[in-house]
């Protein structure tokens, strides 16, 4: 069992937890992910590691409730436990393997969307610890859904934007990238993590701007160790497994349209299970009156 040291709801539907997982905490690096299961019958849920404490043997995870399994996870409180935590999985961010001198010469821009701020954080923090302050754009639908502003502002030059203009700059993250560039900023590398659609449009823009871009893919997966192949993504003319070859890939080579279609694979099944959860036995097909 993997004890939850602290749990809280950061903003509506986005949860933050510190979990005891000594083997993961000892080895993980920014960019890697883990898989959790709530109880002995639960689905395996992959989550990017948001922070880690090697000394205390803990990792931090942040997730949004989107289906039955994440809704179950959200019910866990401080002192409860996950049935399983396994990791670290995937390859660490490329930055980790780049010599510090080389990184110091680079101007790096991070772009985070919504809950994607969580996986961006350890990378920005890691750079900051090495003496590199990167620029970071954090986008949120609205002010009330913005997460980790304080944490991010400590480790980066932070630009916050909201889609509805309720806080910080106004508009999508792509607009902020355009603005920063037209304000005279020059970037050698962009790391974008967020909803697939956001990453697609960031990559499209940075391609036009000539900024090499890394994205972190979060496709459907089962084992996370290369066994099932559910997480196939097309990168250039190759098919890769996000779990072992990624999760980070060259954003200019990813086939986002295919990746987004693949994310829909179990929408019907998931929707049905969610109805079961929210409406009990009353409403999950078979009545003949509805679909």
């Amino acid at each position: 069992m993997y004890k939850i040291i602290e749990a809280k709801e950061m903003v509506p539907n986005i949860y933050w937890m510190i979990v005891e997982a000594p083997r993961v905490a000892k080895k993980c690096l920014p960019g890697q992910f883990l898989i959790v299961r709530t109880d002995e019958n639960s689905e395996r849920i992959p989550l990017t590691i948001c922070d880690y404490d090697r000394e205390n043997g803990t990792v931090t995870i942040v997730f949004q409730t989107i289906g039955v399994s994440t809704t179950q996870m959200a019910k866990l409180k401080t002192g409860d436990s996950f049935h399983d935590v396994v990791g670290p999985l995937g390859r660490p961010s490329e930055l980790i393997d780049t010599p510090i001198d080389e990184l110091k010469k680079k101007s790096i821009l991070f772009v985070a969307g919504g809950v994607g701020t969580a996986p961006v954080y350890p990378q920005v923090k890691w750079l900051c610890e090495k003496g590199i302050m990167a620029d970071a754009i954090v986008g949120s639908k609205t002010k009330d859904l913005l997460i980790m502003e304080d944490e991010m502002s400590k480790v980066s030059n932070l630009y916050v934007t909201t889609d509805d203009g309720s806080y910080g700059r106004s508009g999508m993250v792509t607009k902020v990238i355009e603005d920063l560039v037209s304000e005279g900023k020059k970037y050698d590398l962009c790391v974008a993590i967020g909803p697939m659609i956001m990453m697609k449009f960031v990559a499209k823009l940075t391609k036009e701007l000539g900024i090499p871009t890394i994205v972190s893919m979060n496709p459907i997966m089962v084992d996370g160790t290369g066994m099932c192949g559910a997480c196939r993504v097309t990168v250039g003319d190759e098919v890769k497994f996000a779990c072992v070859d990624g999760p980070e890939f060259d954003g200019h080579l990813i086939n986002f349209d295919e990746a987004m279609k693949r994310q829909q694979l179990y929408k019907t099944e998931e929707g049905r299970k969610m109805l079961e959860l929210t409406e009990g036995d009353t409403h999950h097909g078979g009545c003949g009156n509805c679909n």
């Binding site: 089962v222 066994m227 099932c228 192949g229 559910a230 196939r232 098919v239």
Partner: peptide, 19 residues
Amino acid sequence: ETANGVFSANEYLTRSNLM
């Protein structure tokens, strides 16, 4: 082969057996 509905036997069986 990356179309929706193409699975490895490993994935299909792991979902059914292990999960």
